[in-house]
Simulated assay, not measured.
Amino acid sequence: MKLSGDNLAASLSRQLSSIYLISGDEPLLVNEAADAVRARARSQGFTERELHVVERGFDWQALLSNSKAMSLFAERKIIEIRMTNPTPGEQGADAIIELATEPSADNLVLIVTGKMDGRVAGSRWVSAIEKHGVVVQIWPLELARLPAWIRDRLAKQNLKADAEAASLLAERVEGNLLAAHQEVEKLALLLPPGPVTADTIVDAVADSARFDVLQLGDAAMKGNAARALRVLEGLRGEDVEPPIVLWALNKDLQWIARCQHLMRRGQSPDSAMNALYVWRNRQPAMKHALSRLKPKTVRELLLSAERADRMIKGVIRSDPWLEFERLVAGLAGVRLATAA
């Protein structure tokens, strides 16, 4: 049987197979699928877990022999095989086929590996698992689905997020599901059950430097260069990671550039911001920026953001915080010297 990750829970509720293969390149979803299989297996009496990590020179015959050995206390066990590379070789393929075609009532085999290409997915060992067990393919979550995914995760924590709140978190984590999962867990600790808005999220983590960066862009867009530079210095003093600061500034600049494009096509600032789903709590400051920043200036600021990114990555040998000062001042309407 072949399943997607979304259908695994329903399949497990109906029947537990003797062998599972979970494949994908999204670590959070792959691990959660493996957790679901283990949990279901434990509920069926598979109390022992035996983990094998496949590396060069791995002894597949020893694994087979061990799988046939009875436990001292006759406990049913999960034989978990983790392969960093979804190509086990001839000996490994033979061993997996034997595990699939000659199952033991006392063993459940769980194989976890990375994304399989078409050639591997059609290999004889994968076909054997598909015929005698379950192949679960985990696909990356499309960015357009991320806000809904976040809302669903928050709902499981008794937090009912509106679309704007989910969009804020989705933009913040930039498609990283593990980061999104961590933010959901943090909010579950910070917030009481109930509705969640974008303002609620910002207020709940007002003391968190990861969200203080939002105040940076707000002050700069309002033209308050002194306050913006003070916030920037505070972030640096708190050892906030430069990529977080860059994310916040670049997000506002991208929104401003896209709004200007729509405004040149006849839209008002309000309609342009709404069309681009600019967070409502950002709109007053952004409207101020749109009224004074010329498209040429915004293009220069985007180039400055790109330069800061190259500094962070080490492509340009310079301090990104100096480029941030120039960028923040420019967004606020003050020109500083170019960072070295």
Rank of each mutant, 00 (worst) to 15 (best):
residue 2 K to T: 11
residue 4 S to A: 06
residue 9 A to P: 01
residue 11 S to K: 09
residue 18 S to M: 09
residue 31 N to H: 09
residue 33 A to L: 05
residue 34 A to D: 13
residue 54 V to R: 02
residue 54 V to W: 02
residue 59 D to T: 04
residue 61 Q to W: 01
residue 71 S to D: 14
residue 76 R to Q: 10
residue 76 R to M: 06
residue 84 T to G: 10
residue 97 I to N: 04
residue 99 L to A: 09
residue 100 A to R: 06
residue 101 T to C: 08
residue 113 T to W: 04
residue 117 D to L: 08
residue 117 D to I: 12
residue 119 R to Y: 00
residue 127 S to P: 00
residue 128 A to N: 06
residue 130 E to Q: 11
residue 135 V to R: 05
residue 136 V to Q: 07
residue 141 L to A: 08
residue 149 W to F: 11
residue 159 L to P: 15
residue 160 K to C: 05
residue 166 A to N: 12
residue 167 S to D: 15
residue 186 K to C: 13
residue 186 K to A: 11
residue 187 L to D: 11
residue 192 P to E: 08
residue 199 D to K: 08
residue 200 T to L: 00
residue 203 D to L: 11
residue 204 A to D: 02
residue 209 A to L: 10
residue 212 D to P: 00
residue 219 A to F: 06
residue 220 A to R: 01
residue 221 M to F: 07
residue 224 N to T: 05
residue 226 A to C: 00
residue 228 A to F: 09
residue 228 A to W: 07
residue 229 L to F: 09
residue 236 R to Y: 09
residue 240 V to F: 02
residue 244 I to Y: 01
residue 248 A to W: 08
residue 249 L to D: 14
residue 250 N to V: 11
residue 271 S to W: 03
residue 276 L to Y: 08
residue 277 Y to S: 14
residue 281 N to S: 14
residue 285 A to P: 14
residue 303 L to P: 00
residue 304 S to N: 10
residue 309 D to P: 03
residue 319 D to T: 02
residue 327 L to G: 10
residue 328 V to C: 00
residue 331 L to D: 06
residue 337 A to L: 11
residue 338 T to F: 05
